[in-house]
Amino acid sequence: MIPLLSACAGVEPSPPAACAPGEELYRGRCVHPAARYEPEERIDRDNVVAFGAPPTRLALPEPPRSGFRIIAPPRTLSPGEEVTFCLSWPFPALVNRTVHAARVYTTAGLHHSNVIAKPVNPAFGPNPYPDCHPGADDPFGALPAVIPDVLFASSTQVVGDETLVFPPGMGFTLDTSREIATSVHLLNASAEPEVVELAYDFFTMPLAERAEELVPFVMNVNDFLVPPRATRTVGATCSTFGGNIVSLMPHTHRYAEAFDVDVVRADGGGEARVYEGGAFDLESDIEVYRRAIALEEGDSLRYACRFKNTSGHALTFGLGDNEMCTLFGYMYPPEKQFAAFSARDGEPCMSFGIGAFR
Rank of each mutant, 00 (worst) to 15 (best):
E213V: 13
R290P: 11
P55G: 09
E287C: 02
R254P: 02
V288N: 10
L151C: 11
F124P: 07
A35V: 01
L143Q: 09
E194N: 09
G67Q: 07
V246D: 11
L319K: 04
G169P: 15
A258T: 14
R69F: 00
V234T: 02
G318W: 14
L77R: 04
G125S: 06
E271N: 12
R36C: 00
N309I: 13
F224G: 13
D44K: 00
Q157Y: 15
R97I: 11
S311V: 03
A279P: 14
E23N: 07
G67T: 05
P348L: 06
A117M: 13
I70T: 08
V146A: 08
P119A: 01
R290G: 04
M170Q: 09
L319H: 10
P126Q: 02
N188Y: 04
A142R: 15
F51I: 03
A53E: 12
P61N: 07
C238H: 05
R232T: 06
F51H: 03
R65D: 13
S190H: 01
E82L: 10
L301W: 06
E82N: 13
P16I: 13
Y303M: 06
E213L: 14
P227F: 00
L25Y: 03
G269N: 08
V48F: 01
M331C: 06
Y200Q: 00
F241D: 06
